[in-house]
Design a protein around this nucleic acid. Structure first.
Length: 212
DNA sequence: AACGGGATGGTT
DNA sequence: ACCATCCCGTTG
């Protein structure tokens, strides 16, 4: 149970999070993604934000996981190697997930909220909004802010091109407390606490009682 | 071809 | 609490 080596010899790794990071137990990946940085570089424009909220969708006995219901063209990427993007459309918007665990498992982590870091004016333009909290709070909002759409389904995030993840400065253990709750918007498996968030962070989504 | 629900989000 | 909007899996 050693933490993933964000730091080697005291030097922060600058390369993107690799397949090994994602190819682990899904709830663990979901928790350790908190504090890392999601980056998009589209049309030479870099936008990025620190992840503050995630949800795990498990490979077995999780009725809310898309892969549990059907293996079709839409969900095929979930059954492939870890570290690929699963972008799916919902209500005329998009959600961004990262495939986890071993091939054929069918599991992923949904990214639900970011703290904006770079490219904020680009995010504002894409969102048609100026208020910082309206930019990247909520899974479909952050996709729009970072320019993520269906064309990014099945992108290999470990390549460090177009969309990838960076270790960032991680969580500050004294300030950043991780809490869990039931997942937002899911109608089945409601007793499961598979949503993870940085307690009290300004950019976490949901009602107040699910943010503090 | 038609139907209905959804891991949303903005408005009332 | 309501609903715009549209994709996709299911049914006929």
């Amino acid at each position: 149970m050693r933490p993933f080596p964000f730091f080697k010899c005291g030097i922060p790794l600058k390369s993107p999070l690799d397949r090994e990071f994602f190819a682990r137990e899904t709830t663990r990946v979901a928790k350790e993604l908190l504090g890392t940085v999601l980056v998009s570089e589209i049309g030479e424009i870099r936008t990025c934000g620190r992840i503050v909220e995630t949800e795990a969708y498990l490979p077995e006995r999780d009725s809310a996981c898309h892969a549990a219901k059907y293996r079709t063209a839409r969900t095929e990427v979930m059954f492939g190697p870890a570290g690929y993007a699963y972008v799916y459309p919902i209500h005329a918007k998009h959600c961004f997930n990262i495939v986890t665990e071993l091939e054929e498992r069918g599991s992923a982590v949904l990214i639900r909220a970011l703290e904006p870091l770079d490219g904020i004016s680009m995010m504002q333009a894409r969102r048609g909004q100026d208020q910082e909290r309206r930019l990247t709070t909520g899974p479909a909002c952050l996709c729009q802010a970072l320019g993520i759409d269906r064309s990014h389904n099945q992108v290999d995030l470990s390549r460090g091109k177009t969309i990838w993840l960076e270790p960032g400065i991680g969580l500050r253990s004294s300030r950043d407390i991780i809490k869990s709750s039931q997942r937002i918007g899911v109608t089945t498996a409601k007793t499961r606490r598979l949503r993870f968030y940085v307690a009290g962070n300004h950019f976490v989504s949901g009602p107040a009682k699910m943010r503090d």
